[in-house]
Nucleic acid binder design. Sequence first.
DNA 1: CGTCGTTAGTTGATGTATCAACCTTAATGC
DNA 2: GCATTAAGGTTGATACATCAACTAACGACG
Lengths: 152, 152
Amino acid sequence: MAETRWLAEHELQAWRNLNLMYNQLSGFLARELAGSGLSYPDYLVLALLTDQPDQRVRPSEMGCLLGWEKSRVSHHVARMERRGLVERERCPTDQRGWFIALTDAGRAAISAAAPEHVSAVRRHAVDLLTDDEIATLDRICRKILDGLPHND
Amino acid sequence: MAETRWLAEHELQAWRNLNLMYNQLSGFLARELAGSGLSYPDYLVLALLTDQPDQRVRPSEMGCLLGWEKSRVSHHVARMERRGLVERERCPTDQRGWFIALTDAGRAAISAAAPEHVSAVRRHAVDLLTDDEIATLDRICRKILDGLPHND
DNA sequence: CGTCGTTAGTTGATGTATCAACCTTAATGC
DNA sequence: GCATTAAGGTTGATACATCAACTAACGACG
């Protein structure tokens, strides 16, 4: 077993700041969204659905796109269905599967929440960064994602 | 109410990648840690404690340092105490307060887990980035943190 | 065909995060 | 001093995340 290479001070700083920043930021955005009656995961699901051509997806595809495992998708969609934000429809070509579809209430909820949410993302993140920084951030994320065993 | 300024394509990409990256990465690291019987939050608590001069902190200070609210600290420490990883001691100078202190078992647990964890952080994040990228990442995090209402 | 491994998704148990309500002790103001 | 407010923490309820175990339909191959 080789000696452990501990993190240098500047590496440790960056790593801690990343964790702290992400948690604080997503907590803040979640609280903001709560005013519209949506949680952050709710928002992600609804946003994903509105992006789909016919506003429906298979749970497994949703899992890939959001990076969620199937059980998380299932539990979360079940809760959202109970609140009337989405509904499940049998998939006609595969009797094992379902489609998750946006309901009118779901569409209304995200339309109401989106402007404020996007504005908060701008105010507290995107607009604070230069184009260069955004490009670098994107590159960093890609590098790290590529190095991870992809569960999709 | 002004028109909503939606995110431009490159901004949206970076934002989505940040979310995806952070969730995938922290999920991965959590699974890695689970092999040592610790969760990611467990690790953060123990690491924080080993950093303290006398290996104990007040819950409120821990909350500040980790960006956790007091109730989260309380619940989590209670669970860790049940497992013998930390213990609570009455604060002699303030009868309302406590110290959270590292136990021998806690010290042993983090000593066992740290090398593998740090190596995973290196392999999957730090070592993939140039010094420039790390510096930029740190700057980005600071900017965003500064713009957030600080709950500390 | 039938059997068998794979894939789609669900379920239940447990750990984690947040909120609001609460209790106790400390500090402040008069 | 004594009343009031604030600060340090806890608690219980609920939502969220993860794991392992499960059901059922698909599909490939004999």
